[in-house]
Design a protein around this nucleic acid. Structure first.
Length: 515
DNA sequence: CGGGGTAGCTATACAGCTACCCCGGTGCCGTATT
Protein backbone atom coordinates (compact mmCIF):
# COMPACT_ATOMS: atom_id res chain seq x y z
CA UNK A 1 0.00 0.00 0.00
CA UNK A 2 2.78 2.34 0.99
CA UNK A 3 4.62 1.36 -2.17
CA UNK A 4 1.63 2.30 -4.27
CA UNK A 5 1.50 5.77 -2.71
CA UNK A 6 5.20 6.31 -3.24
CA UNK A 7 5.03 5.28 -6.87
CA UNK A 8 2.09 7.58 -7.44
CA UNK A 9 3.90 10.48 -5.80
CA UNK A 10 6.97 9.80 -7.93
CA UNK A 11 4.91 10.03 -11.06
CA UNK A 12 2.70 12.85 -9.93
CA UNK A 13 5.33 15.24 -8.60
CA UNK A 14 8.42 14.28 -10.55
CA UNK A 15 7.05 12.58 -13.68
CA UNK A 16 9.29 9.54 -13.28
CA UNK A 17 7.99 6.01 -13.56
CA UNK A 18 10.93 4.20 -11.98
CA UNK A 19 13.46 4.89 -9.26
CA UNK A 20 17.14 5.11 -10.03
CA UNK A 21 19.55 2.78 -8.25
CA UNK A 22 19.61 3.38 -4.53
CA UNK A 23 16.80 5.91 -4.38
CA UNK A 24 14.10 3.49 -3.30
CA UNK A 25 16.21 2.01 -0.54
CA UNK A 26 17.06 5.43 0.90
CA UNK A 27 13.46 6.59 0.72
CA UNK A 28 12.23 3.44 2.45
CA UNK A 29 14.45 4.14 5.45
CA UNK A 30 12.92 7.59 5.72
CA UNK A 31 9.36 6.32 5.39
CA UNK A 32 10.01 3.82 8.16
CA UNK A 33 11.11 6.73 10.31
CA UNK A 34 14.74 5.60 10.38
CA UNK A 35 17.92 7.57 9.83
CA UNK A 36 20.02 6.83 6.77
CA UNK A 37 23.23 7.79 5.01
CA UNK A 38 22.90 7.73 1.23
CA UNK A 39 25.91 7.80 -1.05
CA UNK A 40 24.90 8.26 -4.67
CA UNK A 41 27.17 9.18 -7.55
CA UNK A 42 26.73 12.73 -8.82
CA UNK A 43 23.70 13.07 -11.02
CA UNK A 44 22.12 10.03 -9.38
CA UNK A 45 19.08 11.98 -8.25
CA UNK A 46 19.97 12.70 -4.64
CA UNK A 47 17.49 15.50 -4.00
CA UNK A 48 14.56 13.31 -4.94
CA UNK A 49 15.47 11.02 -2.04
CA UNK A 50 14.30 13.56 0.52
CA UNK A 51 11.90 15.61 -1.57
CA UNK A 52 9.60 12.70 -2.23
CA UNK A 53 9.19 11.54 1.39
CA UNK A 54 8.99 15.18 2.49
CA UNK A 55 5.87 15.61 0.40
CA UNK A 56 4.30 12.51 1.95
CA UNK A 57 5.12 13.34 5.58
CA UNK A 58 2.62 15.17 7.78
CA UNK A 59 5.14 17.70 9.13
CA UNK A 60 8.00 19.81 7.91
CA UNK A 61 11.29 18.62 6.47
CA UNK A 62 14.38 20.68 7.29
CA UNK A 63 17.20 20.57 4.74
CA UNK A 64 20.69 21.77 5.63
CA UNK A 65 22.40 23.07 2.53
CA UNK A 66 25.93 24.49 2.24
CA UNK A 67 25.33 27.27 -0.29
CA UNK A 68 22.70 29.98 -0.50
CA UNK A 69 22.71 29.65 -4.29
CA UNK A 70 22.05 25.93 -3.94
CA UNK A 71 19.02 26.57 -1.74
CA UNK A 72 17.65 29.07 -4.23
CA UNK A 73 18.11 26.57 -7.07
CA UNK A 74 16.29 23.80 -5.26
CA UNK A 75 13.39 26.04 -4.28
CA UNK A 76 13.06 27.27 -7.85
CA UNK A 77 13.12 23.75 -9.26
CA UNK A 78 10.44 22.46 -6.90
CA UNK A 79 8.23 25.49 -7.47
CA UNK A 80 8.52 25.03 -11.21
CA UNK A 81 7.02 21.57 -10.71
CA UNK A 82 4.04 23.28 -9.13
CA UNK A 83 4.91 22.14 -5.62
CA UNK A 84 4.03 24.62 -2.88
CA UNK A 85 5.31 25.19 0.65
CA UNK A 86 8.98 25.25 -0.30
CA UNK A 87 11.08 28.00 1.30
CA UNK A 88 14.59 28.90 2.37
CA UNK A 89 15.68 31.13 5.21
CA UNK A 90 19.14 32.66 5.27
CA UNK A 91 21.03 35.92 5.48
CA UNK A 92 20.33 36.79 1.86
CA UNK A 93 16.72 37.67 2.66
CA UNK A 94 15.54 41.25 2.93
CA UNK A 95 14.09 42.10 6.38
CA UNK A 96 10.47 42.06 5.17
CA UNK A 97 11.02 38.78 3.37
CA UNK A 98 12.52 37.32 6.50
CA UNK A 99 9.58 38.42 8.63
CA UNK A 100 7.12 37.07 6.14
CA UNK A 101 8.83 33.69 5.92
CA UNK A 102 9.11 33.39 9.68
CA UNK A 103 5.39 33.99 9.91
CA UNK A 104 4.79 31.33 7.30
CA UNK A 105 6.98 29.02 9.37
CA UNK A 106 5.03 29.70 12.56
CA UNK A 107 1.78 29.15 10.71
CA UNK A 108 3.17 25.75 9.71
CA UNK A 109 2.73 26.44 6.06
CA UNK A 110 6.22 25.30 5.08
CA UNK A 111 6.67 21.75 3.85
CA UNK A 112 10.37 21.82 3.00
CA UNK A 113 12.64 24.41 4.62
CA UNK A 114 16.20 24.98 3.42
CA UNK A 115 18.66 26.50 5.90
CA UNK A 116 22.40 26.94 6.34
CA UNK A 117 24.19 25.22 9.23
CA UNK A 118 25.13 28.69 10.50
CA UNK A 119 21.50 29.74 10.72
CA UNK A 120 20.80 26.75 12.93
CA UNK A 121 23.37 28.03 15.41
CA UNK A 122 21.41 31.22 15.90
CA UNK A 123 19.52 30.76 19.14
CA UNK A 124 16.65 33.12 18.33
CA UNK A 125 16.03 31.24 15.09
CA UNK A 126 16.31 27.84 16.72
CA UNK A 127 13.81 28.80 19.41
CA UNK A 128 11.22 29.50 16.74
CA UNK A 129 12.11 26.43 14.73
CA UNK A 130 11.97 24.16 17.77
CA UNK A 131 8.26 24.97 18.12
CA UNK A 132 7.47 23.45 14.74
CA UNK A 133 7.04 19.69 14.37
CA UNK A 134 9.64 18.16 12.05
CA UNK A 135 9.25 14.87 10.18
CA UNK A 136 12.71 14.63 8.66
CA UNK A 137 16.08 16.33 9.07
CA UNK A 138 18.19 16.26 5.92
CA UNK A 139 21.87 17.09 5.47
CA UNK A 140 22.60 17.60 1.81
CA UNK A 141 26.25 17.42 0.66
CA UNK A 142 26.93 15.69 3.96
CA UNK A 143 30.65 15.29 3.27
CA UNK A 144 30.89 18.97 4.30
CA UNK A 145 30.61 17.72 7.89
CA UNK A 146 33.97 16.06 7.47
CA UNK A 147 35.55 18.21 4.81
CA UNK A 148 34.65 21.61 6.27
CA UNK A 149 33.34 20.92 9.75
CA UNK A 150 36.71 20.55 11.48
CA UNK A 151 38.09 23.92 10.48
CA UNK A 152 36.52 25.92 7.67
CA UNK A 153 32.85 25.87 8.66
CA UNK A 154 32.74 24.42 12.14
CA UNK A 155 28.96 24.81 12.40
CA UNK A 156 28.84 21.64 10.33
CA UNK A 157 30.12 19.82 13.41
CA UNK A 158 27.42 21.31 15.61
CA UNK A 159 24.33 19.83 13.97
CA UNK A 160 23.69 17.14 16.57
CA UNK A 161 22.35 19.57 19.17
CA UNK A 162 20.03 21.13 16.61
CA UNK A 163 18.60 17.75 15.71
CA UNK A 164 18.00 17.10 19.39
CA UNK A 165 16.29 20.45 19.89
CA UNK A 166 13.99 19.59 17.02
CA UNK A 167 12.85 16.49 18.88
CA UNK A 168 15.26 13.97 17.34
CA UNK A 169 13.52 13.43 14.00
CA UNK A 170 14.99 10.80 11.65
CA UNK A 171 18.04 12.07 9.76
CA UNK A 172 18.90 11.63 6.11
CA UNK A 173 22.48 12.43 5.10
CA UNK A 174 23.28 12.56 1.40
CA UNK A 175 26.54 12.88 -0.49
CA UNK A 176 28.26 11.77 -3.68
CA UNK A 177 31.64 10.97 -2.18
CA UNK A 178 32.62 9.41 1.08
CA UNK A 179 35.58 7.36 2.15
CA UNK A 180 34.98 5.08 5.12
CA UNK A 181 36.48 7.72 7.44
CA UNK A 182 34.09 10.37 6.16
CA UNK A 183 31.16 7.95 6.49
CA UNK A 184 32.12 7.31 10.09
CA UNK A 185 32.35 11.01 10.80
CA UNK A 186 28.95 11.70 9.25
CA UNK A 187 27.25 8.87 11.12
CA UNK A 188 28.82 9.92 14.41
CA UNK A 189 27.92 13.58 14.02
CA UNK A 190 24.33 12.94 13.00
CA UNK A 191 23.60 9.85 15.04
CA UNK A 192 22.97 7.65 12.01
CA UNK A 193 23.57 3.93 12.66
CA UNK A 194 26.49 2.89 10.46
CA UNK A 195 24.50 -0.08 9.22
CA UNK A 196 21.95 2.29 7.68
CA UNK A 197 24.24 3.18 4.81
CA UNK A 198 23.14 2.89 1.20
CA UNK A 199 26.14 2.96 -1.07
CA UNK A 200 26.70 2.28 -4.71
CA UNK A 201 29.84 1.88 -6.73
CA UNK A 202 31.61 5.15 -7.13
CA UNK A 203 33.60 3.92 -10.11
CA UNK A 204 33.10 6.36 -12.95
CA UNK A 205 33.91 4.06 -15.80
CA UNK A 206 33.69 6.75 -18.47
CA UNK A 207 36.39 8.92 -16.88
CA UNK A 208 39.98 8.77 -18.07
CA UNK A 209 42.60 9.72 -15.46
CA UNK A 210 45.71 11.31 -16.96
CA UNK A 211 48.70 12.85 -15.17
CA UNK A 212 51.28 14.80 -17.16
CA UNK A 213 54.63 15.55 -15.60
CA UNK A 214 56.22 18.85 -16.62
CA UNK A 215 59.62 20.35 -15.91
CA UNK A 216 58.68 23.93 -15.15
CA UNK A 217 55.92 26.49 -15.27
CA UNK A 218 56.62 27.46 -18.86
CA UNK A 219 56.20 23.90 -20.04
CA UNK A 220 53.04 23.60 -17.98
CA UNK A 221 51.55 26.62 -19.73
CA UNK A 222 52.50 25.16 -23.09
CA UNK A 223 50.93 21.80 -22.37
CA UNK A 224 47.83 23.53 -21.06
CA UNK A 225 47.45 25.67 -24.18
CA UNK A 226 48.02 22.69 -26.40
CA UNK A 227 45.36 20.70 -24.59
CA UNK A 228 42.89 23.57 -24.68
CA UNK A 229 43.42 23.77 -28.41
CA UNK A 230 42.97 20.09 -29.11
CA UNK A 231 40.45 18.80 -26.55
CA UNK A 232 36.76 18.61 -27.19
CA UNK A 233 34.85 20.94 -24.84
CA UNK A 234 33.11 22.03 -22.74
CA UNK A 235 35.95 22.00 -20.25
CA UNK A 236 37.06 23.17 -16.86
CA UNK A 237 40.52 24.12 -15.59
CA UNK A 238 41.14 24.16 -11.84
CA UNK A 239 43.60 26.39 -9.97
CA UNK A 240 44.44 26.90 -6.29
CA UNK A 241 44.91 30.63 -6.69
CA UNK A 242 42.61 33.30 -8.00
CA UNK A 243 45.49 34.96 -9.76
CA UNK A 244 46.42 31.77 -11.54
CA UNK A 245 42.90 31.36 -12.90
CA UNK A 246 42.79 34.95 -14.16
CA UNK A 247 46.26 34.77 -15.64
CA UNK A 248 45.60 31.58 -17.58
CA UNK A 249 42.30 32.96 -18.79
CA UNK A 250 44.08 35.99 -20.24
CA UNK A 251 46.65 33.69 -21.84
CA UNK A 252 43.95 31.60 -23.48
CA UNK A 253 42.12 34.69 -24.67
CA UNK A 254 45.31 35.85 -26.37
CA UNK A 255 45.38 32.52 -28.13
CA UNK A 256 41.89 33.26 -29.44
CA UNK A 257 39.95 30.93 -27.14
CA UNK A 258 36.61 32.09 -25.78
CA UNK A 259 36.55 31.59 -22.02
CA UNK A 260 35.93 33.05 -18.57
CA UNK A 261 37.35 32.78 -15.09
CA UNK A 262 35.56 32.17 -11.80
CA UNK A 263 36.57 32.50 -8.14
CA UNK A 264 35.22 33.48 -4.72
CA UNK A 265 36.62 37.00 -4.90
CA UNK A 266 34.27 38.04 -7.68
CA UNK A 267 30.96 39.86 -7.18
CA UNK A 268 28.05 37.43 -6.90
CA UNK A 269 26.49 38.81 -10.06
CA UNK A 270 29.60 38.06 -12.13
CA UNK A 271 29.82 34.58 -10.69
CA UNK A 272 26.21 33.89 -11.54
CA UNK A 273 26.71 35.19 -15.07
CA UNK A 274 29.70 32.92 -15.74
CA UNK A 275 27.87 29.96 -14.26
CA UNK A 276 24.79 30.61 -16.38
CA UNK A 277 26.77 31.13 -19.57
CA UNK A 278 28.69 27.93 -18.97
CA UNK A 279 25.47 26.03 -18.31
CA UNK A 280 23.86 27.45 -21.45
CA UNK A 281 26.88 26.63 -23.58
CA UNK A 282 27.68 30.25 -24.39
CA UNK A 283 31.07 29.74 -22.76
CA UNK A 284 32.74 26.36 -23.18
CA UNK A 285 35.80 26.90 -21.04
CA UNK A 286 36.11 28.13 -17.44
CA UNK A 287 39.25 28.77 -15.40
CA UNK A 288 38.26 28.39 -11.79
CA UNK A 289 39.32 27.92 -8.19
CA UNK A 290 37.57 25.38 -6.00
CA UNK A 291 34.75 27.92 -5.55
CA UNK A 292 33.37 26.51 -8.81
CA UNK A 293 31.75 23.22 -8.11
CA UNK A 294 28.80 22.46 -5.92
CA UNK A 295 25.62 23.28 -7.74
CA UNK A 296 27.18 23.18 -11.19
CA UNK A 297 24.71 20.80 -12.74
CA UNK A 298 26.15 20.41 -16.21
CA UNK A 299 26.14 16.91 -17.61
CA UNK A 300 28.20 17.33 -20.78
CA UNK A 301 31.53 18.57 -19.44
CA UNK A 302 34.10 16.73 -21.56
CA UNK A 303 37.36 17.52 -19.76
CA UNK A 304 38.70 18.74 -16.42
CA UNK A 305 42.30 19.86 -16.19
CA UNK A 306 44.12 20.58 -12.94
CA UNK A 307 46.77 23.26 -13.19
CA UNK A 308 47.30 23.17 -9.41
CA UNK A 309 46.87 20.37 -6.89
CA UNK A 310 44.01 20.23 -4.41
CA UNK A 311 44.91 19.48 -0.79
CA UNK A 312 43.58 15.90 -0.82
CA UNK A 313 42.32 13.08 -3.02
CA UNK A 314 38.69 13.62 -2.10
CA UNK A 315 38.70 17.19 -3.35
CA UNK A 316 40.47 16.01 -6.49
CA UNK A 317 37.92 13.29 -7.14
CA UNK A 318 35.05 15.65 -6.53
CA UNK A 319 36.48 18.08 -9.04
CA UNK A 320 37.29 15.57 -11.77
CA UNK A 321 33.96 13.90 -11.04
CA UNK A 322 32.21 16.81 -12.74
CA UNK A 323 33.29 15.46 -16.10
CA UNK A 324 31.02 13.26 -18.19
CA UNK A 325 27.96 12.99 -16.00
CA UNK A 326 26.03 12.14 -19.15
CA UNK A 327 27.98 8.89 -19.35
CA UNK A 328 29.93 9.81 -22.49
CA UNK A 329 33.74 9.66 -22.32
CA UNK A 330 35.38 12.32 -20.18
CA UNK A 331 39.04 13.24 -19.96
CA UNK A 332 40.82 14.49 -16.86
CA UNK A 333 44.42 15.58 -16.56
CA UNK A 334 46.60 16.75 -13.71
CA UNK A 335 49.56 18.87 -14.77
CA UNK A 336 52.25 18.25 -12.22
CA UNK A 337 55.75 19.21 -11.15
CA UNK A 338 57.16 18.42 -7.71
CA UNK A 339 57.28 22.10 -6.71
CA UNK A 340 53.50 22.14 -6.93
CA UNK A 341 53.31 20.51 -3.52
CA UNK A 342 54.31 23.83 -1.91
CA UNK A 343 51.03 25.62 -2.54
CA UNK A 344 48.58 23.13 -0.99
CA UNK A 345 51.06 22.59 1.84
CA UNK A 346 51.03 26.29 2.56
CA UNK A 347 47.25 26.50 2.31
CA UNK A 348 47.00 23.86 5.01
CA UNK A 349 49.61 25.58 7.16
CA UNK A 350 47.81 28.92 6.98
CA UNK A 351 44.57 27.48 8.15
CA UNK A 352 45.62 27.21 11.79
CA UNK A 353 46.76 29.83 14.30
CA UNK A 354 50.35 29.58 15.54
CA UNK A 355 51.44 28.86 19.10
CA UNK A 356 51.85 32.50 20.12
CA UNK A 357 48.42 33.44 18.86
CA UNK A 358 46.92 30.45 20.63
CA UNK A 359 48.69 31.28 23.89
CA UNK A 360 47.72 34.94 23.88
CA UNK A 361 44.12 34.23 23.04
CA UNK A 362 43.80 31.54 25.69
CA UNK A 363 45.24 33.94 28.26
CA UNK A 364 42.68 36.51 27.28
CA UNK A 365 39.84 34.02 27.68
CA UNK A 366 41.23 32.77 30.99
CA UNK A 367 41.04 36.34 32.24
CA UNK A 368 37.26 36.38 31.73
CA UNK A 369 36.26 33.32 33.71
CA UNK A 370 32.64 33.21 34.76
CA UNK A 371 31.67 36.13 32.52
CA UNK A 372 29.82 36.67 29.31
CA UNK A 373 32.40 37.75 26.81
CA UNK A 374 32.42 39.13 23.29
CA UNK A 375 35.16 39.13 20.71
CA UNK A 376 35.00 41.27 17.62
CA UNK A 377 36.61 39.89 14.50
CA UNK A 378 38.43 43.11 13.74
CA UNK A 379 39.72 43.37 17.30
CA UNK A 380 40.92 39.78 17.16
CA UNK A 381 42.90 40.58 14.07
CA UNK A 382 44.50 43.66 15.61
CA UNK A 383 45.00 42.18 19.06
CA UNK A 384 46.22 38.67 18.28
CA UNK A 385 46.59 38.59 14.50
CA UNK A 386 43.73 36.12 14.25
CA UNK A 387 41.70 36.12 11.06
CA UNK A 388 38.07 35.09 10.95
CA UNK A 389 38.95 31.44 10.32
CA UNK A 390 41.54 31.16 13.09
CA UNK A 391 39.18 32.76 15.57
CA UNK A 392 36.42 30.33 14.59
CA UNK A 393 38.69 27.32 15.00
CA UNK A 394 39.96 28.45 18.42
CA UNK A 395 36.46 29.09 19.72
CA UNK A 396 35.30 25.77 18.32
CA UNK A 397 37.96 23.88 20.23
CA UNK A 398 37.38 25.89 23.40
CA UNK A 399 33.70 25.07 23.17
CA UNK A 400 34.52 21.41 22.68
CA UNK A 401 36.83 21.49 25.68
CA UNK A 402 34.08 23.00 27.82
CA UNK A 403 35.92 26.29 28.37
CA UNK A 404 33.17 28.36 26.80
CA UNK A 405 29.45 27.84 26.13
CA UNK A 406 26.46 29.44 24.42
CA UNK A 407 28.74 30.42 21.62
CA UNK A 408 26.95 32.62 19.14
CA UNK A 409 27.86 34.77 16.21
CA UNK A 410 27.03 38.44 16.38
CA UNK A 411 26.99 41.03 13.66
CA UNK A 412 30.75 41.44 13.59
CA UNK A 413 32.15 38.87 15.99
CA UNK A 414 31.18 36.38 18.67
CA UNK A 415 29.55 36.28 22.07
CA UNK A 416 29.85 33.45 24.60
CA UNK A 417 30.02 32.58 28.25
CA UNK A 418 33.36 31.63 29.79
CA UNK A 419 33.30 28.72 32.27
CA UNK A 420 34.08 29.36 35.94
CA UNK A 421 37.24 27.36 36.15
CA UNK A 422 39.31 26.65 33.08
CA UNK A 423 42.77 25.20 32.92
CA UNK A 424 44.12 27.75 30.47
CA UNK A 425 46.47 25.08 29.18
CA UNK A 426 46.98 26.39 25.67
CA UNK A 427 49.53 23.72 24.81
CA UNK A 428 46.84 21.10 24.89
CA UNK A 429 44.57 23.13 22.64
CA UNK A 430 47.42 23.80 20.27
CA UNK A 431 48.33 20.11 20.10
CA UNK A 432 44.80 19.23 19.08
CA UNK A 433 44.95 21.68 16.20
CA UNK A 434 48.37 20.46 15.17
CA UNK A 435 47.14 16.89 15.15
CA UNK A 436 44.44 17.94 12.76
CA UNK A 437 47.04 19.75 10.63
CA UNK A 438 49.26 16.67 10.54
CA UNK A 439 46.29 14.64 9.40
CA UNK A 440 45.79 17.06 6.53
CA UNK A 441 49.47 16.91 5.58
CA UNK A 442 49.08 13.15 5.56
CA UNK A 443 46.17 13.39 3.15
CA UNK A 444 48.20 15.65 0.91
CA UNK A 445 50.92 13.01 1.00
CA UNK A 446 48.35 10.47 -0.22
CA UNK A 447 47.70 12.74 -3.17
CA UNK A 448 51.44 12.82 -3.91
CA UNK A 449 51.64 9.03 -3.72
CA UNK A 450 48.77 8.68 -6.17
CA UNK A 451 50.49 10.99 -8.62
CA UNK A 452 53.82 9.23 -8.43
CA UNK A 453 52.54 5.69 -8.37
CA UNK A 454 53.28 3.53 -11.39
CA UNK A 455 50.14 1.40 -11.20
CA UNK A 456 46.61 1.85 -12.56
CA UNK A 457 45.11 5.08 -11.24
CA UNK A 458 41.52 3.86 -11.30
CA UNK A 459 42.40 0.81 -9.23
CA UNK A 460 44.01 3.03 -6.60
CA UNK A 461 40.98 5.30 -6.45
CA UNK A 462 38.92 2.19 -5.80
CA UNK A 463 41.27 1.25 -2.97
CA UNK A 464 40.80 4.71 -1.55
CA UNK A 465 37.05 4.20 -1.33
CA UNK A 466 37.51 0.59 -0.18
CA UNK A 467 35.85 -0.60 -3.35
CA UNK A 468 37.30 -2.44 -6.27
CA UNK A 469 37.29 -0.30 -9.38
CA UNK A 470 38.44 -1.95 -12.53
CA UNK A 471 36.18 -1.56 -15.53
CA UNK A 472 36.57 1.44 -17.78
CA UNK A 473 34.47 2.23 -20.81
CA UNK A 474 37.12 3.97 -22.86
CA UNK A 475 40.70 4.81 -21.93
CA UNK A 476 41.50 4.06 -18.30
CA UNK A 477 44.50 6.14 -17.27
CA UNK A 478 48.01 7.16 -18.27
CA UNK A 479 49.43 4.07 -16.57
CA UNK A 480 47.20 1.75 -18.60
CA UNK A 481 47.43 3.75 -21.81
CA UNK A 482 45.21 6.45 -23.29
CA UNK A 483 43.67 6.80 -26.72
CA UNK A 484 43.75 10.58 -27.00
CA UNK A 485 41.75 10.64 -30.20
CA UNK A 486 38.66 9.88 -28.08
CA UNK A 487 38.88 13.30 -26.52
CA UNK A 488 40.23 15.49 -29.27
CA UNK A 489 38.29 17.75 -31.59
CA UNK A 490 39.36 15.91 -34.73
CA UNK A 491 40.50 12.33 -34.89
CA UNK A 492 44.28 12.21 -34.99
CA UNK A 493 44.23 10.24 -38.21
CA UNK A 494 42.38 12.97 -40.09
CA UNK A 495 44.76 15.79 -39.21
CA UNK A 496 48.26 14.62 -38.35
CA UNK A 497 49.88 16.66 -35.63
CA UNK A 498 52.87 18.51 -36.87
CA UNK A 499 54.03 21.41 -34.75
CA UNK A 500 52.52 19.97 -31.56
CA UNK A 501 54.23 16.65 -32.05
CA UNK A 502 56.31 17.38 -28.97
CA UNK A 503 53.50 16.30 -26.69
CA UNK A 504 52.51 13.35 -28.77
CA UNK A 505 55.81 11.86 -29.75
CA UNK A 506 55.12 8.60 -28.01
CA UNK A 507 51.82 8.11 -29.75
CA UNK A 508 53.28 9.34 -33.03
CA UNK A 509 56.05 6.81 -32.71
CA UNK A 510 53.55 4.06 -32.07
CA UNK A 511 51.70 5.07 -35.20
CA UNK A 512 54.80 5.09 -37.39
CA UNK A 513 56.30 1.93 -35.97
CA UNK A 514 53.53 -0.53 -35.31
CA UNK A 515 54.67 -3.07 -32.75
C1' DC B 1 57.59 26.15 0.91
C1' DG B 2 59.47 28.00 -3.28
C1' DG B 3 58.57 30.54 -7.70
C1' DG B 4 58.09 35.08 -9.68
C1' DG B 5 58.58 39.82 -9.80
C1' DT B 6 61.24 43.83 -8.96
C1' DA B 7 64.30 47.24 -6.85
C1' DG B 8 68.90 48.13 -6.59
C1' DC B 9 73.42 47.60 -8.07
C1' DT B 10 77.29 48.43 -11.36
C1' DA B 11 79.24 53.13 -13.02
C1' DT B 12 80.44 54.92 -20.45
C1' DA B 13 75.91 52.29 -20.61
C1' DC B 14 74.10 48.09 -21.18
C1' DA B 15 72.34 43.81 -19.54
C1' DG B 16 72.51 40.87 -16.07
C1' DC B 17 73.08 39.70 -11.48
C1' DT B 18 71.55 39.35 -6.54
C1' DA B 19 68.78 40.03 -2.60
C1' DC B 20 64.56 40.58 -1.06
C1' DC B 21 59.64 40.69 -0.73
C1' DC B 22 55.27 38.85 -1.94
C1' DC B 23 51.93 35.50 -2.70
C1' DG B 24 48.70 31.35 -1.93
C1' DG B 25 41.18 28.24 -1.49
C1' DT B 26 36.40 27.08 -0.05
C1' DG B 27 31.05 30.62 2.90
C1' DC B 28 28.17 31.46 6.10
C1' DC B 29 27.02 35.47 9.56
C1' DG B 30 22.59 41.68 11.04
C1' DT B 31 16.83 41.69 11.71
C1' DA B 32 12.38 39.60 15.60
C1' DT B 33 6.33 40.59 19.28
C1' DT B 34 2.98 34.83 17.38
Amino acid sequence: MMKETVKKALEHYFSYREFRPGQREIIEYALRGESVLGILATGGGKSLCYQLPALLFPYMTVVVSPLISLMADQVRQLRSKGIGGIEYINSALAPEEYKWKMKKLRDRKIKILYVSPEKLQQDSFMQQLAGIPVSLFVVDEAHCISQWGHDFRTDYQRLKDCIHRLGDPPVMALTATATSDVQKDICLQLGVPAAHTVKHSLNRSNICYDVQFVGDKKEKDEVLLYKLGSLQGPGLVYFRSRNGAERACALAEQAGISCAYYHGGMPASDRLLVQQQFLNGEITLVFATNAFGMGIDKSDIRFVIHYHLPTDMESYLQEVGRVGRDGAPGYTCLLYMPEDMALPRQLIAEEYPDITQTRDFVHYIAGHQGNISTVQSIAALEEWGLNELHLGILLYHMEKGGWIRSLERTKDGWTFGVADRISGNYQNLFDIMMKRRELRYGRLKEMERWIESRTCRRRQIGDYFSQSHSGSLASCCDRCGIDYSLYEVQPASAIPHTDQAVWDWERELDRLLPL
